[in-house]
Write a protein that binds this DNA or RNA. Sequence first.
DNA 1: TTCTTGCATTTTGCATTCATTTTTATATGA
DNA 2: TCATATAAAAATGAATGCAAAATGCAAGAA
Lengths: 233, 233
Amino acid sequence: MNDMADVRIPRTSLHETVTEHIREMIFSGTLSGGDRVPEKLLCERLGISRTPLREALKVLASEGLLTLLPNRGARVARLTVDAVEELFPVMGALEALAGELACARATDDQISEIRAMHYQMALYHTRGEVQSYFELNQRIHEAILAAARNPTLKTSYDALAGRVRLARYRANMSKARWDQAMAEHEEMLEALLRRDGVRLAEVQRRHLDNKRATVVAAIRAGTADAAEGIAYD
Amino acid sequence: MNDMADVRIPRTSLHETVTEHIREMIFSGTLSGGDRVPEKLLCERLGISRTPLREALKVLASEGLLTLLPNRGARVARLTVDAVEELFPVMGALEALAGELACARATDDQISEIRAMHYQMALYHTRGEVQSYFELNQRIHEAILAAARNPTLKTSYDALAGRVRLARYRANMSKARWDQAMAEHEEMLEALLRRDGVRLAEVQRRHLDNKRATVVAAIRAGTADAAEGIAYD
DNA sequence: TTCTTGCATTTTGCATTCATTTTTATATGA
DNA sequence: TCATATAAAAATGAATGCAAAATGCAAGAA
């Protein structure tokens, strides 16, 4: 009865916990690249049997985070330039919709909060504090998505955004690109304050397209092997 | 380096086959409603053990086709009116993007084929042949998605469309609505022939929004229990 | 050397088994 | 009669076992 090592999380099934855990391992880079995902090793590390682990692998594969090769196990999916070129237009369409819905449905408080975050982010921009900038940038996009009040939209978007995170590109964009991104955010805030959904949607699409270019450049520059890697899979 | 053609023998794992099989059972209505999915029964019927079945259930749940209740098994997800209201705007955004991309990237042959299907569909419309109309309607939407040449977009769209199929609404739209849908298709073809992506996107969004209204009405009218059902789950 | 080829080891796919929880049936008392 | 408690049955969650496939390695041939 008194099992001290009972670390189970109540009311969630093990496979779900494991799914989340491995997802985090992928995002954090503990698992990366096109590394194999050895079942036995992970089982020992997580202290579970293979059954729930394998269930988790199937789910992650259906999300596009892993690639399953029959009888050869799972590999962490690699994000090719081609995949990025496909992903960002879709994400752009979804963010555009989010912007449109947010303009129509956000509460004044939500807009105020986004404005506050924006100015804070602008401050980080002028100070050149990249890390803090990115954090707030992330939070603003999330806030717009939340203001859209469409969980399905959020889920779809998050799935795609998760796949983009596979790139693990260094966020070393040029000063010019950073200034441009900040300018786009100015436009976005302006449109949101006027609740001009059409305009916000347009800016969002443009913003995402520029981000696409940045990510593609980063992949091409930083890890050229990403493109090659998949050729052998 | 021996550069022989990479002709891999296509192999499929059992869990994958099972996933597809159950998916079809859901779409065909063999499994429907919020029905429980008894593992034992399905195992016997498919002649497999519980392990691959359960892997399939996890995947289908992550697609939103099933709902997993810890220790209480899986149920076929029910589509509420609220969910439909969420799904269609997202599908609209994706179809709009598909239209935009199709205008930019479709080959002349692809456009010709879509035009041909359109006229065939128009014929079915005037003749009042509903079933044939729907089939071609489906194929046209698929053709536009294909012409967009973005597999990620198609995958995302299909996932959402799959969830909509859960509604299993009777396609008994009014004559007025049918005429309207046909008129929208006329507009779509026109835009596509002119390769006017902005216009096509706009029509697609409108088209999907009208379809949303139709589906919501069908759910409300036909099976009002769909809305109630989920309240007890 | 470098490339095969056969064999041992490892890993994966699936079935089976064990443990825990939920559900159903039954009994008991107010 | 109804409600509650309790026991039996069923179903689910997770671990283990076993067969098949893949991987690694070493010995031998070109």
